[in-house]
Design a protein around this nucleic acid. Structure first.
Lengths: 228, 228
DNA sequence: CATGTTAGTTATAGCTTCTAACGCAAGCGA
DNA sequence: TCGCTTGCGTTAGAAGCTATAACTAACATG
């Protein structure tokens, strides 16, 4: 719709050809519909045919943009990881600490539960994520480690001394991060506990139990942030 | 396996007719194949046609035994809940305490990860479990509450005092269980934390990180059982 | 023995993913 | 401005799925 195209290669601000821009637009439309469908009926109920029909084009046209159904889903998973990594980075740089990170995570999860489950939900037995996605996963762990490292650790729990010692020699996942074992332990505790409460809440296992899920979440966060 | 059938309606030990026994046998065969498929490719990859072919009968014959694919899956979910409830009851009655319950849960989960995810995995947005399944879920919570109540609670964590107070007035999920709020808090902590570490392990999120998942699990259990 | 129930069959509708072959039109270089 | 190429979208169709309908054959029971 914008009409200021056609300048040469000069300036180099917009190197995308009209074809490329159109293609990117359609791809983005497809993904938007896919997210709608996933939010409505889960990744299982995602239908390429239905998406194509919604976009006014007929079935196989969609294969010009995504090689297969799995390829589209993988792309959505990648975007979900990317979105979570950005959320973590932003929370880490905001200086809000572990508490802030936890609240950012919960907001991100509640914003689209199925997106959360695309990252941390039931795995497909055969599936192996491509390398760039595991790289984003490491980026997420990196942000978490940063926050844990700068948060300090007053009494990270005495009973896990043995495991903390184990971590001091099995820390290749930290990838050269200079955090001491106690910080690694804390990052793992944060990850597993936040996931524990969040995934059960998102899956609806707390509905009808009476208590407020956000209170449980906050209580769990409070135990992980003893200082404040 | 017992062969004492054929007497009349008298005695009433075995009221199953040969037809009923055959039907039960075929139903059980179908479910066995279904579990195989789920373990191999997840609940999504379950194909009634493939099961029928494996059993040497043609497609629609299977609908004599299960009304639909969803009905079969629901039955598998019910069996999974039943199996977990039995495991919990046995562990509770063995007197092994929270530690024993945790280890029993982990063994049950590792024995068939996809069965675990049938209970605690990604939910299908539209799906609502039938009442008898939610009843089994309450039975599971009951066993957990029993163990938590008899385990006593030395220092269940100070920071969650506010949430524990909240629980004292929002405890309809305990269904008349006489446990004090501190025990309810402990049961919730056990549930969410065990699920946190277990589900991440089962989903493979710890692979390649270097540490031993069982060490992390044991450390988490150790923090929940301060006494021993 | 007659009758009703039930397990299995094939045929079919309608959905899905995905491939193949074709037409058309938009963009690119000369 | 004129081809030529590239790529988008189409229809046709194969192979798979769930599920229904109609029918047959075997079984159980009166």
């Amino acid at each position: 719709m914008a009409a200021d195209a056609g300048a040469g290669e000069e300036a180099g601000v917009d190197v995308t050809s009209p074809r490329e821009r159109y293609r990117a637009q359609v791809r983005s439309d497809i993904k938007a519909r896919a997210w709608d469908q996933i939010a409505r009926s889960g990744a299982t109920g995602l239908s390429l045919n239905a998406i194509a029909k919604e976009l006014g084009m007929s079935g196989p046209a969609l294969y010009r943009y995504f090689g297969s159904r799995d390829e589209l889903i993988t792309e959505l998973i990648r975007d979900a990881y990317r979105s979570l990594a950005d959320t973590f980075r932003a929370a880490a740089e905001s200086g809000a600490g572990l508490e802030g990170l936890a609240q950012a995570l919960r907001r991100w999860a509640l914003d689209d539960p199925q997106r959360y489950f695309l990252v941390y939900g039931t795995p497909v037995p055969g599936y192996h994520a491509p390398d760039d996605i595991t790289a984003i996963a490491r980026e997420i762990m990196g942000a978490l480690l940063d926050v844990c490292a700068s948060a300090g650790l007053e009494a990270p729990a005495p009973a896990s001394a043995s495991f903390t010692a184990h971590l001091s020699q099995h820390r290749q996942w930290a990838e050269g991060h200079p955090a001491p074992p106690g910080v690694l332990r804390k990052a793992l505790a944060f990850w597993t506990r936040m996931h524990g409460v969040l995934s059960l809440e998102l899956a609806g296992h707390f509905t009808g139990m009476g208590f407020g899920p956000e209170r449980l979440f906050d209580a769990e966060v409070a135990e992980l942030t003893p200082g404040r």
